Amino acid sequence: MQRRFRGPPTAVIVIVVAVVQVVGTVFASARQPDHRPLDALAFGLLLLGPAALSLRRRAPLVMLPAAAAAVAAYLAIGYAWGPVFLSLALAIVFSAAAGKRWQTWAVAGACGAALVAVSLSRGDDAALLRAFAGTAWLAILVLLGEGARLRGERVAERRRQREAREQAARDEYRLTLARDIHDVVAHSLSLINVRASVALHLGEKDPEQFRPALEAIKAASKDSLAEIRQLLGVLRDDAPLRPAPPPRLSQIPTLADNARRTGLDVRLSQPDPDLASQLPDAVQEAAYRIVQEALTNVVRHAGARQAAVVLAVQAAGTAAGTGAGLLTVTIDDDGAGAAGVPDGNGVTGMRERAAALGSTLELAPLDPGWRVRAAIPVPDADASGSRTVDGRP
């Protein structure tokens, strides 16, 4: 993160102010022979004010009273006038900028009152005007510090908001990766587990069944390794890989074929390929992942014999009276269902994918079986109607 500029270093400010006050006062005292000559105490007071500025970050409550006391003592003793007020002026600005509002106004008011009181005691109208002018400058210095404080708060707030947005983007990125990795691993391992179980069962009766089962396991593991390699590649800064293209509706038949290899009878109905290819990538990826996770759950948990996967595109302007089209994704099975079972990571991931596109995931029992359904809005979908390959809605 880029470091925020906080002004010149404190040590530089202290040195510059000390040089200006000492050198400027030496030259000014040469033209004021009626004042007390500068001595060791005078130089000590001239250096005390700049030294107090070194506390502007560590102890701002001490800085302003110390600077004011040094200036007051210097003038009360009767030394020559000069740039001795510089340290007090900066202390007022720094104190107000640090948020010490009441202390700053109190010290500035006390200084202004002292100027007016001294002028009144002398009975000099010109001195009184100068006192009022000095009081006005004290108020201006406080307001300058207040302005610096408000600007610093606005900058800090913008920085907090930017960091919050960046953190939210990182969290969303990690969540997306977690969903993708879960979908790939759970689906592939489920197929491998089921095929391995089938191979062990059939191999005892027919050894020839080993080869096709092992070929299916090899294909599933190869595909899953390729996807995981692409997903994990973006996490490696030393050797980034080219991100894999998002899955599309045209790849859903492969999911159905993999599920069929486990013994599940899968019937698939999809939109016309030309129509499906026009859908946004985010919509196609969400539909693919929902089908993938739903079939994985059917294979792993449902104990079903049949499943039906139906995807249909509804034309824009006919979807619940809105101007957007809809891609409906429905997965039915005749298994045991999932009523009363808490949502796992997979179902949570499906809900999040649907919600990210303005849809909701519907889970409902059938007699027998279970239904998973999502109606995903398709903005500016160029669809002429609800059509599928086999004519079913």
Rank of each mutant, 00 (worst) to 15 (best):
A30T: 11
F132W: 15
A70V: 05
A59C: 09
A96H: 07
K100I: 03
P83V: 09
P50K: 05
Y79H: 11
A117Y: 09
A52H: 09
G99M: 04
L115E: 05
D39P: 12
V93A: 11
P50R: 04
V116H: 00
L90T: 00
W105Y: 10
R31V: 11
W81V: 08
R122V: 10
G112E: 01
A126R: 10
A28P: 05
P65M: 05
S95H: 06
L120Y: 10
L47P: 13
A30M: 14
L61V: 05
A131H: 00
A42N: 12
L53R: 09
Q103S: 03
V84D: 11
A42Q: 04
T104E: 02
A97R: 15
L48N: 10
R57V: 06
L88P: 04
A70L: 04
L55R: 14
A127F: 07
A40N: 02
V62P: 02
V71M: 14
V62Y: 12
R130M: 10
V118P: 00
P50T: 08
A80S: 14
R57Q: 14
V62K: 04
A52K: 06
F94N: 01
A28N: 05
P60Y: 08
L115Q: 12
L128K: 01
I77Q: 11
R56Y: 01
A110Q: 01
W105H: 12
L53P: 07
C111N: 07
L46F: 09
P37Y: 10
R130S: 13
A108Y: 00
L47W: 11
F43Q: 06
F132C: 08
P50I: 05
V93R: 01
L46C: 13
A113T: 14
D125N: 10
W105P: 00
L55W: 15
A106M: 08
R57Y: 08
A131D: 01
A114P: 03
L88R: 01
A96P: 03
L61W: 12
A108Q: 02
L48P: 07
P33G: 13
P83H: 10
G99K: 09
S121D: 11
D34P: 03
L61F: 09
H35N: 10
A69I: 06
I92P: 00
T104L: 04
A73M: 13
P65T: 08
A40D: 12
W105S: 02
L88V: 15
A113R: 03
